[in-house]
Nucleic acid binder design. Sequence first.
DNA 1: ACAATTTGTGAGAGCGCTCCCAAGATAATG
DNA 2: CATTATCTTGGGAGCGCTCTCACAAATTGT
Lengths: 334, 334
Amino acid sequence: MTNLTLEMIAETAGVSRSTVSRVVNDHPNVRPEVRERVQKVINETGYQPHAAARSLASRRTHMLGLVIPRSVQHFFSDPYFPRLTQGIAEACNAADYTLSLFLLHTADDEKKLIPRISRRGMLDGIIIQSTHLRDSVIPDISEGQVPFLVAGRPMNAPNASFIDVDNVSGAMKAVQHLIGLGRRRIATVAGSPDTAAGLDRLTGYRRALKENGLAIDEDLITAGDFTEPGGYEAAGRLLERQPDAIFCGSDMMAVGVLRRLKEAGVRVPEEISIVGYDDLPPARLTDPPLTTIRQPIRRFGVRAVQTLTEMVSHPNQGQVRVILDATELVVRGT
Amino acid sequence: MTNLTLEMIAETAGVSRSTVSRVVNDHPNVRPEVRERVQKVINETGYQPHAAARSLASRRTHMLGLVIPRSVQHFFSDPYFPRLTQGIAEACNAADYTLSLFLLHTADDEKKLIPRISRRGMLDGIIIQSTHLRDSVIPDISEGQVPFLVAGRPMNAPNASFIDVDNVSGAMKAVQHLIGLGRRRIATVAGSPDTAAGLDRLTGYRRALKENGLAIDEDLITAGDFTEPGGYEAAGRLLERQPDAIFCGSDMMAVGVLRRLKEAGVRVPEEISIVGYDDLPPARLTDPPLTTIRQPIRRFGVRAVQTLTEMVSHPNQGQVRVILDATELVVRGT
DNA sequence: ACAATTTGTGAGAGCGCTCCCAAGATAATG
DNA sequence: CATTATCTTGGGAGCGCTCTCACAAATTGT
């Protein structure tokens, strides 16, 4: 009962292994009545093709890997990653791929896992979350022969295929909103300067000021590390420079900024306007609720999977770059 | 260059396929000098065994699946699941297993994915997040022949192996703390009554009251659904009954309760004390920071993987039950 | 009507590995 | 030194599937 094979189905259906295989894989060249007869046997027995055998013969595993490098320390404290994971998982389901998750916590993990990740016959393709400049996960994985796509512009692998959202234009929307509010001393708590997202959002901040004829005051630019405590500290530094608005490179940092401002007795948005970035669940729960830039994280995940599966079926296309411009200002209370 | 096989390594090392296999798998019976010679060829060529071929021959994939049923709607809005995922991923890394993630969003997903999940030759074992009473994912998966372990006591599969934390004793700790504070009208916002966690924590609440000689007032018992808005609403219902303390079945609900109390102008903890459950990151960010019950989610994940791999290597052990009693009261500001 | 296609089916040859077994080499024993 | 036990190595037989190819059957064309 337990170990059904193609051959056994073939025998009880009175056809050959090949024909059963055709039925299972929806190959057109099977006589309808034969197909039906075989299908019946399959249903009755509950036959399921053996995944490993199939992979070995077809050289396809129908599995995708999602790699979150260790340098993304704030993995699950920042809701961004779960959200991304969700989008990617959803897209995998839809595309009939199985998703494997690789959370690289420690340096040991990386040493141990990277060879396993790029092992042949395990993954059809890999999505790697982009990371710090000095992180070597992306270069390491690119040594393997499995096609991969970086989520977020990679800092240290300029030739790698990647997909990203347009962080520059998103940041510009945020700053333009603040300018439209009449703010003139607009500060920013930028993300880590060694990440593409941090850098690009800062670029957007600068560009928006410039395009609106405002001077850029380097004293109003400070960096957090995308975390809540990072935002809290940055706000402390910024307070004495008396900005009338702060653009934060992530919602988590904005939450920290709000906490610091509340402690200092600064009223938001009366004295200082705040705009975050990401539109994650915590943004709704702040007091007042956070005005922010929404990223289409889910769609991002879906697009990533589409792009990668495309690369899998048509290799050697050279570098693929996809940039989504789909950010959106969400005006709430700050 | 690209498609190295055991055979090719064997040839260039001047040994047989079998010997190379022994070297790769650390089989003891290989002469040291031969082992070294083979290892050298392996290193130079960057040979990696082909995962699918190995799985087919050995009948082991070294892959575990984590299934989050659709009825866990609040998947990534509740940080609990990411945390659990992280713990499990970590444990998988340590145990040399690859983790596959199955997020079942829709009924379609379930229909499509469950056969794939329980397909032979793909997963060595499965961890399923426990869910609602009426959910059929666990029974469905148990039809397959892949060993599985339910994370959280399963409501509708009494014979399934599972691992759980002791929610009853955890809830008792919370309520005892409130009693120790001198509170007497202790209300509870219970979790969904069709989940084991919700039920068990409510049981703990009742038992703690009883053991301390306090009457149970059914009017002080209300249910949320583990979400922030659920807590917000429940608090509204509770307000008129004038409790002096509220035990919440999850941190997310406690966050909602706090929001509602703040709106009503009720001072916490002066007028009403609050205790949450889970000790997730948001618990620290509330104002005042939330007193809560910490669950060893990470350790829970680790234990789950250990238990499952044990089941994989020793099948037919009958039902396995593991209950961790490792909850801990974390006193903060509420 | 018969040749030229098109379609349906089966057999064979792997995919790259593990695992068992047999045989030769070596070591331990009386 | 013969004899038995142990190590080391290679070869064979699959694991359960896909895929190409050859051939039979059905369809089409002239």
